[in-house]
Amino acid sequence: DDWEIHFNNITIRLHGVSEEQIEELKELIKNGAHEEELRKWAEEVNR
């Protein structure tokens, strides 16, 4: 699925990401992940 997530003036566009991966991302954000951590997560997902 395609997703677009907005938070802290950042837009993250995701393509072909599962519901499970979105839940992981929500947890990262909820736990106060920094932009660098989110980038690493996105790189892993996009492999």
Rank of each mutant, 00 (worst) to 15 (best):
E44Q: 08
G16A: 09
R13W: 13
Q21G: 02
H15W: 14
D1K: 15
N31Q: 11
L38R: 00
A33L: 05
L14Y: 04
N31V: 04
F7H: 05
K26Q: 06
E24M: 09
I29R: 01
A42C: 12
R39V: 14
Q21R: 08
E35F: 10
E43M: 03
D2M: 14
K26N: 10
L14K: 01
I5Y: 11
E19L: 14
E36C: 09
F7R: 01
W3C: 14
G32V: 01
L25S: 00
I5A: 07
W3G: 02
L25Y: 07
E19Y: 13
V45S: 03
H15T: 08
R13E: 09
A42N: 02
N46E: 14
V17R: 01
H6G: 04
S18Q: 04
A33S: 07
H6F: 11
E20A: 13
A42Y: 14
T11Q: 04
W3S: 03
V17Q: 02
N9H: 09
E37S: 10
L25V: 04
L14M: 06
I12T: 02
T11P: 04
E27F: 13
G16D: 10
G32N: 02
E24L: 08
I5E: 03
E44A: 06
E44K: 07
L28Q: 01
E27L: 13
N9D: 11
L25W: 04
R47E: 15
E37A: 09
N9Q: 08
R13V: 13
D1Y: 15
H6S: 11
E20R: 12
K30F: 05
E24G: 05
E24V: 12
L38K: 00
E44R: 06
A42G: 02
I10A: 05
I22Q: 03
H15K: 10
L14A: 03
G32W: 01
Q21W: 06
E43S: 03
I12S: 03
K26E: 06
G32T: 01
E43D: 11
K40M: 09
T11G: 08
R13F: 12
L38V: 13
R39F: 11
K40F: 06
E4T: 13
G32D: 03
E20N: 09
E36L: 07
F7S: 03
I29F: 04
D1F: 15
D1L: 15
R13S: 13
V17E: 01
E24F: 08
E27G: 07
D2N: 11
E23M: 12
N9I: 09
S18V: 03
V17A: 13
H34I: 10
G16F: 12
K30L: 09
N9A: 10
G16C: 15
L28Y: 03
H6P: 05
T11Y: 08
I12A: 04
D1R: 15
K30C: 15
F7M: 11
R13K: 14
V17T: 02
K26Y: 14
A33H: 03
D2C: 15
N8V: 09
S18R: 10
N9P: 02
Q21I: 14
W41C: 02
I12C: 04
K26T: 05
I29V: 07
D1I: 15
G16Y: 12
E19T: 11
E4M: 09
L28D: 00
A33T: 05
E24P: 01
I5P: 03
H34E: 13
W3R: 04
E24I: 09
L28M: 08
R47Q: 15
R13P: 10
Q21A: 10
G32L: 01
H34W: 03
N46T: 07
I22T: 04
I12N: 03
A42E: 10
F7Y: 11
E36K: 08
K40V: 07
E24C: 02
F7W: 10
N9G: 15
R47A: 15
E19S: 12
N9C: 13
V17H: 02
I12Y: 04
E19G: 09
A42T: 05
G32K: 02
K26H: 09
N46P: 03
S18D: 05
D1P: 08
R39Q: 14
R47K: 15
E20S: 14
L14N: 01
H34M: 10
H34R: 12
L28T: 00
E36A: 09
W41E: 00
H34P: 13
I29E: 00
E23L: 12
N46D: 14
W41I: 01
H15D: 08
I5L: 10
R13I: 14
K40D: 04
F7Q: 02
I22M: 10
L28S: 00
E37K: 04
I12M: 05
H15C: 05
E35Y: 11
L14Q: 01
Q21M: 09
N31C: 12
S18E: 02
L14R: 00
R13G: 10
N31E: 05
W41P: 00
V45R: 02
E35D: 06
G32F: 03
N8L: 08
L14G: 02
E36G: 06
R13H: 14
I29L: 11
I10D: 07
A33G: 03
Q21S: 06
D1T: 14
N8M: 13
